[in-house]
Nucleic acid binder design. Structure first.
Lengths: 195, 195
DNA sequence: GTCTATATCGAGATAGAC
DNA sequence: GTCTATCTCGATATAGAC
């Protein structure tokens, strides 16, 4: 495994990642990826045995990317409360992409549930990384009851926002829902006004 | 347009509807539909000019189906409050299908946003039918402020539930979230305890 | 109206030259 | 390691017999 080959492998994964997000997995061909990376179709099979293997690499890369992102959040934000707000603001920061392509994690799981069920268990680990991180933040705030349910609720709320924003291409809805989700965090989870 | 041809056309639409839901639109071939209906591939083109036209017919059929369903709800349930509860219970009634295939409306919009953007504006009308009906029920209850936002919020919440249930194949999550959504309806919309 | 046969295309995948 | 050439398959779609 030379360094040049590894670098190309990485470029393939990055290109596939973007295309899978923008066009969907099934709808993205080797030709599409080859055009972006600037290589020939035949060259893929030196780096990957099949298209499924590319998908596997993309999922692994996404999971690693989410973990890195959360590590950076932890470094940048010392207060778990601020981290939770930053999580809720994520759709706001990515609103244009969500309007156009939805949530990368949610839309991939939705596609794989229909087209490639065998890989769904790999894909939903992307959710699990967020989930486990949310649980840690809640525990740090002294919240220990129903934390798993709360974390999953967070994720589902963000997914609902992403789907409707994408279906109606409506960023106003996204903005108003993010506000409402913050209010829920304040009133029902942190109970700022009551403690 | 003879009656026999019309009946077959309907059978094609029903079969395509189910297959699009279970396997996705792009992932469903004419052969798949032909196998279910029991006809030959070539016969499709007497009834439809293209696969897109079948998709169009499926979306129209789904919209008509939702409208019929809501009419039945209106007849069966006279209290708008009960109708809203019945709406929230919908994922519960369809929990096994949602676990396996997600929400028919949400998953189709998610797919079309990536693979066939031109038809997204047709598909999201399925959401609009629910939305407008929810607005009517809220108005009937004397709620006139922010009703459109509330209706869209309802829809997004249900979508979030469907995605996570589907991604983790977890019906327990669905059940707990439906309970929570009912509580939100009581406390924040109907404000039963406060009026 | 429904069928069989076929055209055309693009997909994933392989073989082997360089 | 990367390329070109090619194989095989299944997809949408068409033509024309019945």
């Amino acid at each position: 495994m030379g360094s040049k080959g590894e670098a190309l492998r990485q470029r393939i994964v990055v290109a596939a990642d973007n295309l899978f997000y923008q066009q969907g997995y099934e709808n993205t061909s080797f030709s599409d990826i080859a055009d972006v990376v600037g290589i020939s179709r035949g060259n893929f099979y030196y780096h990957f045995k099949s298209k499924d293997e590319i998908l596997n690499a993309v999922i692994d890369a996404r999971i690693a990317g989410i973990e890195m992102m959360l590590d950076e959040w932890d470094k940048k934000l010392k207060d778990p409360r601020q981290r939770l707000y930053y999580y809720i603001d994520m759709p706001l920061r990515n609103q244009e992409e969500i309007r156009l392509h939805g949530c990368p994690t949610g839309s991939l799981c939705t596609e794989l549930a229909k087209a490639n069920r065998a890989m769904l268990d790999d894909a939903n680990k992307m959710f699990t990384v967020f989930h486990d991180w949310l649980v840690v933040q809640l525990n740090l705030l002294g919240i220990n009851k129903n934390v798993k349910k709360i974390a999953m609720h967070f994720i589902a709320r963000v997914q609902g926002i992403a789907i409707v924003t994408n279906a109606f291409e409506d960023k106003d809805f996204l903005q108003q829902e993010v506000k409402q989700l913050k209010k829920w965090l304040d009133d029902e989870v942190l109970k700022s006004g009551h403690s």
